[in-house]
Design a protein around this nucleic acid. Structure first.
Length: 269
DNA sequence: AGAAATACCCGTACGC
DNA sequence: TGCGTACGGGTATTTC
């Protein structure tokens, strides 16, 4: 199954060490890490549950338990770490799960944006998500049709997880630049060949992110080296690698947005 | 419906 | 040098 960058490494790396282990105890070091249920109920319900699988949907990591799904969203600074029980919890650990083999799974999250859900109805959290960009259902034709039926600015639409699941601010800028589309262009003005280019760009950027183990744009965002290969994100003032024009930065929907003013031109309607 | 603003976070970089 | 402040990521929520 295709994976997104941040979750990919962690899910793939930890899966064999997690499956089959039983959760003996939960420690909630920062209560608001739990999106649901309450701390008391979480501790009761998770205790004694065996881990039966690890998977992913959109930016959510799914730790499948016998009776529940443990959903983890790392947001920006979150990390899942497996440690020997001999090692003490570290700074910024928000939740720890003691496992049956003298290890514990720690959810560490410096900026406290990440969230964890424990639910027997994972669809209540995952139900509204759009398609997976790397799966077969996401085709250029699907993208074209769905851009037509929505009349929205391209960037906010691509960031909308109910439209398409998995793109964040950085990768969206990269995708739009590669496809030579302006973030403020209206979705219904996109031509079939442009939708094709965007489709291709989305898949290429996500695959490149995975290949490079994600991007680390800040000391706290650990991992990969995709940040050394950005075409526009964080490149303001530098020349476009395609045409040499100076990369510009402006704000779209409160998000830092980067374009090449020569390659990417606004289409309104 | 869709856009915009706000809130949530905090270590860091930067300006005075 | 020290202090105050802006910054940035993703998403839920509210308001227009």
């Amino acid at each position: 199954m295709p994976e997104l960058p941040e979750v990919e490494t962690i899910a793939r790396g930890l899966e064999p060490d997690l499956i089959g282990k039983t959760i003996l105890e939960a420690d909630v070091l920062w209560a608001r890490t739990l999106a649901m249920p309450t701390v008391k109920k979480f501790k009761e319900q998770v205790k004694g549950q065996k881990i039966t699988g690890v998977s992913r949907r959109a930016k959510y990591l799914i730790v499948q338990l016998e009776k529940f799904s443990l959903l983890v969203h790392l947001r920006m600074s979150g990390d899942l770490l497996l440690r020997s029980s001999k090692i003490k919890p570290e700074k910024h650990d928000r939740l720890t799960l003691t496992l049956s083999n003298a290890t514990y799974l720690a959810f560490n999250d410096t900026r406290k944006f990440g969230r964890v859900w424990l639910t027997d109805e994972p669809e209540s959290v995952l139900g509204k998500l759009g398609p997976e960009p790397l799966e077969k259902g996401f085709t250029a034709e699907w993208l074209y049709q769905n851009l037509q039926t929505r009349k929205r600015q391209l960037k906010p639409l691509l960031l909308d997880q109910s439209f398409l699941a998995g793109l964040g601010n950085i990768y969206t800028d990269e995708c739009l630049n590669i496809a030579k589309l302006h973030p403020l262009s209206m979705s219904n003005t996109v031509k079939p060949e442009q939708a094709g280019a965007l489709h291709k760009a989305i898949r290429a950027v996500l695959k490149e992110g995975i290949r490079r183990n994600g991007a680390s744009i800040d000391w706290v965002y650990r991992g990969g080296d995709y940040q050394n290969h950005f075409r526009v994100y964080g490149q303001e003032g530098k020349p476009c690698v395609t045409c040499g024009a100076i990369i510009q930065k402006f704000t779209v929907g409160q998000r830092g947005t980067h374009i090449c003013p020569n390659c990417q031109v606004v289409e309104r309607k």
